[in-house]
Computed example of a mutant assay.
Amino acid sequence: MTKPVKSSGTLFLIPSSLGSEYTDVVFPAAFSGFINTLEVFIVENARTARRFLKSAGYSKSFDDATFHIMDKHTSDTEQAAFLDEILTGRSAGLLSEAGCPGIADPGQQIVRYAHSLGIPVKPLVGPNSILLALMASGMNGQQFCFHGYLPIRKHQQVQKIKEIEKDAKGGGATQIFMETPFRNLSLAEEVIRQCSSSTLFCIATDLTMETEEIITKPVGQWRKDGLPKLHKRPCIFLLWYPGKKG
């Protein structure tokens, strides 16, 4: 078992806003206190990270802060090197563009490196779209499975949707998945085309924002009523078969 390094700082996992401008509503009061202890950040985009931190109450000068960029071009070696400052005693914050680091977002590799080096890891409390959607869906919250992003290619996507519905009917667990905002409508249309009329389908849109909308209906009812406007709106999708009680 790796022991914590006595002289090291801590890696704080900082959840970001899901889009809400009211950070005082979606984050606890102690949140700004934690982030104001930090001057080193590991982020996807420095500009948007600064904007979020400022809105969340970060009061230090960004001129004195260090921002390490973590994106698809960042090598494993570079990610591991981001932790060097923590090993010298400086704590750092890991921040993704939206939601929670490591949950359908980058960050898990850096967290794994931190554990291997004995660096303490502290997740901060904040909004999580997956759990918020599940809470409000009326579906099985005792058993659920998150699939992340479904395949883009149509035949693979159709196959995956059918597999997900089969799992929902067979085991009774809520099936949760997502898509990039500009492909949300296409995916939702495919779900109501492929799934049984009695399967429940929840669409949770713009979570924590003023335009938030969370609707659960049988697929057959969605076919009759039509879908809401989903283009370029962040969504979480959930499927559950009511024949299996949660």
Rank of each mutant, 00 (worst) to 15 (best):
S196E: 15
G126D: 06
G118V: 13
E210Y: 07
L124Y: 11
P242G: 01
I214Q: 02
P234A: 00
V158D: 01
S197A: 13
L134I: 09
R193W: 14
F177Y: 12
L238V: 14
S137H: 07
Y241H: 15
Q175F: 13
R112W: 13
L131M: 14
P106D: 05
Q157K: 15
E189D: 04
P151C: 02
L239D: 00
Q194D: 03
C145A: 03
L239S: 01
F182E: 00
I119E: 00
A104T: 09
F182H: 07
Q109G: 02
Y113S: 03
W222E: 00
M209C: 04
H147L: 01
S196M: 12
Y241C: 09
F182V: 00
I164N: 07
P234L: 03
E189T: 08
R153H: 14
K169T: 09
Q156L: 15
A188H: 10
I110D: 02
L227Q: 05
G243L: 10
I192P: 04
A133M: 15
Q175H: 11
L230V: 04
K217F: 15
Y149S: 06
R153P: 06
C235R: 08
P123I: 05
R112F: 09
E212C: 05
F182A: 00
K122Y: 07
L207M: 02
V111D: 01
I161V: 11
K169R: 14
N140T: 09
P123E: 08
K169S: 06
S197R: 10
R223K: 15
Y113M: 06
G226A: 07
P234R: 03
V111Q: 01
T180L: 11
T180R: 13
R153G: 04
I203L: 10
D206W: 08
D167R: 15
D105G: 03
C145M: 03
